[in-house]
């Protein structure tokens, strides 16, 4: 269970320029739920995702995941929390462009120092599930947008996290690939993962497997 309690997030761009990205946000997400965060550009969707992933800290309020306060974790513990719990599919994928598909997917496993067979098994499994195994040795830079996204999804899942977060997953995809992403989403949902998606793509409105749509406006839930 994920709980956001009275979250306010203020970005200090400079002394006189402070941006209030979120104001007094309260939100509870149950295990296995698939949530869609909707809202205009700049409304604060990405900020919520990054707080849940402990990539940033709230200015005030608490983020509690499975009973643990993750909004106050020291940096190293935040990393470990992400490694063990979060699969983040970034809007720009955040792959390392000069590494191969396989090498990118291996990255979240590196700190765990697994046996090479174990690592290989995990990588093969996610590559198959997300249909990228035919490109395993290609350098990511040379892949199409859709292929890169599948690498990002595979990487987010290689540690088998409970929580999957996707930021604007269809922003860079065409109609057909977007439809394909919905298939992937359905599969992830069937694996009983908690899924949080931030998007302003109307494609996500009214889907049967989406549990809740939450509208954000100017940093507040409406």
């Amino acid at each position: 269970m994920i709980k956001l309690k009275n979250i306010t997030k203020i970005y200090d761009v400079s002394k006189n320029d402070k941006v209030k990205a979120l104001e007094n946000v309260n939100l509870t997400i149950k295990e296995g739920e698939l949530i869609v965060l909707k809202g205009a550009s700049g409304s604060g969707k990405s900020t919520i995702l990054s707080l849940i992933a402990a990539l940033s800290k709230p200015s005030s309020g608490e983020v509690i995941v499975d009973g643990k306060q993750i909004s106050k974790l020291p940096d190293n513990f935040a990393s470990i929390y992400r490694r063990d719990n979060i699969g983040f599919i970034f809007q720009k994928y955040n792959l390392i462009p000069t590494l191969s598909v396989k090498e990118n997917i291996l990255l979240p496993l590196v700190p765990l120092n697994p046996d090479s067979e174990e690592a290989d098994e995990k990588i093969q499994e996610v590559m198959k599930r997300f249909h990228i195994e035919h490109k395993e040795d290609s350098v990511v830079r040379n892949l199409s947008g859709g292929e890169q996204q599948r690498v990002a999804i595979a990487r987010a899942n290689v540690n088998n996290p409970k929580i999957i977060i996707a930021d604007e997953p269809t922003a860079n995809l065409d109609e057909k690939l977007s439809q394909h992403f919905l298939e992937i989403l359905r599969e992830l949902k069937s694996l009983n993962k908690t899924i949080i998606i931030a998007t302003h793509d109307p494609l996500f409105i009214g889907l049967d497997f989406v549990d809740r749509e939450i509208e954000i406006h100017n940093g507040k839930i409406v």
Binding site: D75, S79, F90, P111
Partner: peptide
């Protein structure tokens, strides 16, 4: 810089 950020975002600690 970006690479370090990515590694941390996917679960590497500062130590790693």
């Amino acid at each position: 810089k970006r690479e370090i950020g990515i590694l941390k975002a996917i679960g590497w600690t500062v130590d790693d």
